[in-house]
Design a protein around this nucleic acid. Structure first.
Lengths: 229, 229
DNA sequence: CTCATTTATCGAACATGTTTGATAATATAA
DNA sequence: TTATATTATCAAACATGTTCGATAAATGAG
């Protein structure tokens, strides 16, 4: 669990655990899939798993990290092709849900972790969270590389709040029982338009005073997440 | 656990469990306070507790129900005195946080159960949730009894979304480490003004088309929570 | 290669939420 | 009051996430 390199054997074992855990998780759900079952299928003692993962929740966390990696990868292409903020946001968030879809049954664990302020894995916790930090980078690029001309006060806030927007979408998705999460994708399509509209409105000089008030409010209450340096 | 009347002895025992559980929960936190400790302090066997509460989480849930009861009580006075939507909302939500403040350390459990769509206690679950339903009644009264003249399409949505707004405030509060939750109260003060502004704007005839689009969107994606009959 | 050190694994034990079957207490009906 | 039915309690057992101490395997320095 150090920054030092891991032995090949260790890597293989770790991967084996992840493989069987994923199968069991999606098949039986997070709670019903026991560490002992995972151990059996991975041909090892239950205790041995803990030499590779600190807790059961950390195994799930690893899947999110993997999804994020895949997502970041896929977004490179998206952000290269799309220039309009609305389209960039739409494709990025849709891709996130697409990639997460196979993990839907266990995704609520993400919010279970998030709900506990004490938990260092929580993306809402004050202290830096690796998950959130990595994800924020993506949204910074999404905003920075778009064609949108943003007022300065909006510019420094937008990425953080789009991240929050994505969390909201994910929360909706987790509770969405429509076939193939149809409603979630529809919600994305509708709300990104809304975001675009709001951003456009925010650039109208006439309403600058109101906008300033609004961004000042947002700035006061956004936790100082990942404010770079 | 039925609707039938409970014996006096049962009521006393149940109350005893709640008393010691609350003490232990706030003192040591939800996870650190064990059922065995609760049992010891309540002078009974661990198993006996389960004749009064189905699970440990249900004990916590009971505290929320108690808070809600207190809150509903306190809101009668508030809703009688305040007439303006902004003030009604402000006082109601502030009161909620005030009453919940002693329970802050264990309140994250609320969102922990909320995060699992399978959990019938989750206020986000599709099926009717007692917690949510009771809470929604309050917000219906809040809206209905206010002086605000609401367009019909806004009227049928507002209560539900104000409930959601309150959930957001609570989520913020749980992660708010400022002394006496100062920031949360400030957030309430600021955002209720925003709500008021939005409601006022929504009544301007000129923007009715935009508003209609917006409420149509909200209506499509709000789960059909507690739509009365 | 050899030996020392680090790492991986095992099996047992532990902590804790929960279940169970037996027993005692209590309420109810006659 | 007494017999019966219901309810409350108990101790033990169970399920499962996790820890621990010992042992085996792998690694690396000489």
């Amino acid at each position: 669990m150090s920054k030092s390199r891991m032995t090949p054997k260790s890597i293989r074992t770790r991967q084996k655990i992840l493989d069987v855990a994923l199968l069991l998780f999606v098949e039986k759900g997070y709670d019903k899939a026991t560490m002992r079952q995972i151990a059996v299928q991975a041909n090892m003692a239950p205790g041995s798993i803990y030499h590779h993962f600190p807790t059961k929740e950390h195994i799930v966390q690893t899947f999110y990290d993997m999804i994020h990696e895949e997502h970041a990868q896929a977004c490179v292409g998206i952000l290269r092709n799309e220039i309009k903020l609305e389209h960039r946001l739409r494709e990025v968030v849709r891709k996130k849900i697409e990639l997460a879809e196979p993990f839907k049954k266990i995704s609520y664990v993400l919010f279970r972790v998030a709900s506990n302020p004490q938990n260092p894995l929580s993306p809402f916790s004050a202290q830096s969270s690796p998950t959130r930090d990595r994800s924020l980078v993506l949204f910074r690029q999404l905003v920075a590389g778009s064609s949108a001309k943003l007022p300065a006060d909006v510019d420094i806030l937008l990425a953080d709040y789009l991240w929050l927007y994505q969390m909201g979408i994910i929360l909706y998705w987790i509770h969405d029982t429509s076939e193939n999460s149809r409603k979630t994708f529809r919600l994305i399509d509708r709300t990104v338009k809304l975001v675009q509209t709001l951003v456009e409105i925010s650039s109208i000089p006439l309403i600058a005073p109101f906008r300033k008030k609004f961004t000042k409010l947002m700035l006061e209450f956004v936790p100082d997440w990942g404010r770079p340096a």
